[in-house]
């Protein structure tokens, strides 16, 4: 598999929108074909080549280098292949992706994997708000896929998610899993407040304790066997240091909620 290397040579002055960076759009294009792809630099139409030096023709394996924290929408609608980002990346990475993998060796901005339906996003650093969330007004969020953040993530992780698996290696902000319809969120670190507010179904698990809303009721402390599947998958995907045997074997406090809604969701907090 040949690699397409995109190296940032001119950092954008204002946000750069590059939804064209995905294996499907680049596929079959020559270096100059790729450099001629249109991007939006603020309100100005520009070419990818104005910002990136391209090496190799378009294939399914794309490498990006440089500080892309002001570059938005990389991997939009991606369905196959792999994008590796050596550095930080801006908002909306992997928006609407349905397959393939995005690997970020740095931090990601807000809105990682919005409207995702499949594939995987791995962020080795921290992520911003709304990891795997629905856009505003949308009643259902991501419908599949996996998002693994090794570091911290902020508020509204998995807002309204309908299916899929989100894992945070560090801490989470407030409203983790808010309005969740189903799916699984695991936070290895501390969660902020109001976890699971409005959730109908789904699982939010944490390896730490967390404050609970008054509408979540404690059920029992038990060993949720199914959770092992998720924890094992995390161990196999770079969380081995964080997910330990005690977490696989241990007991969790189960809270069910949200009492205001269906009350079929659960928050599992590692007990011992």
């Amino acid at each position: 598999m040949s690699t397409t290397l995109l190296k940032l040579h001119t950092p954008p002055q204002v946000p750069l929108e590059t939804e064209v960076i995905s294996p499907t759009s680049l596929s079959g294009l020559s270096e100059s074909g790729i450099e001629h792809l249109q991007v939006m630099h603020g309100n100005v139409k520009a070419k990818l080549g104005d910002f990136f030096k391209v090496t190799g023709k378009g294939g399914s394996d794309i490498h990006l280098e440089g500080d892309l924290s002001n570059v938005k929408m990389i991997g939009t609608g991606m369905s196959t292949g792999k994008i590796t980002i050596d550095g930080d990346v801006g908002m909306h990475v992997g928006m609407g992706m349905s397959g393939g993998e995005i690997l970020v060796h740095g931090d990601a901005g807000d809105w990682v994997g919005p409207e995702m339906s499949g594939g995987r996003i791995v962020v080795k650093g921290n992520a911003g708000h709304m990891v795997g969330s629905a856009y505003r007004g949308q009643p259902a969020g991501i419908s599949g896929g996996e998002i693994f953040i090794y570091g911290n993530a902020k508020n509204e992780i998995g807002n309204s998610m309908r299916r899929g698996f989100i894992a945070i290696g560090g801490n989470a902000g407030d409203f983790t899993g808010v309005n969740m319809l189903a799916g699984t969120i695991i936070v290895a670190g501390e969660m902020g407040i109001r976890t699971g507010a409005g959730m109908k179904r789904g699982t939010i698990a944490s390896l730490q304790s967390a404050p609970m809303l008054p509408t979540f009721e404690y059920s029992c402390t038990y060993h949720p066997l199914f959770l092992r599947f998720y924890l094992i998958r995390l161990q196999e995907n770079g969380f081995r240091r964080i997910i330990q045997d005690k977490h696989l074997n241990g007991k969790y406090k189960r809270y069910s909620g949200d009492g205001i809604e269906l009350n079929r969701g659960e928050v599992l907090l590692f007990a011992r």
Binding site: T184, Y222, L225, F226, F229, R233, R264
Partner: peptide
Amino acid sequence: SYQISKLIDGRKLWRIPVMEGEFL
């Protein structure tokens, strides 16, 4: 109706509540 399904890496599991905990 208290059962819960989980989908992980293409595998769909059912969690059926039982007196001991859950049957998977």
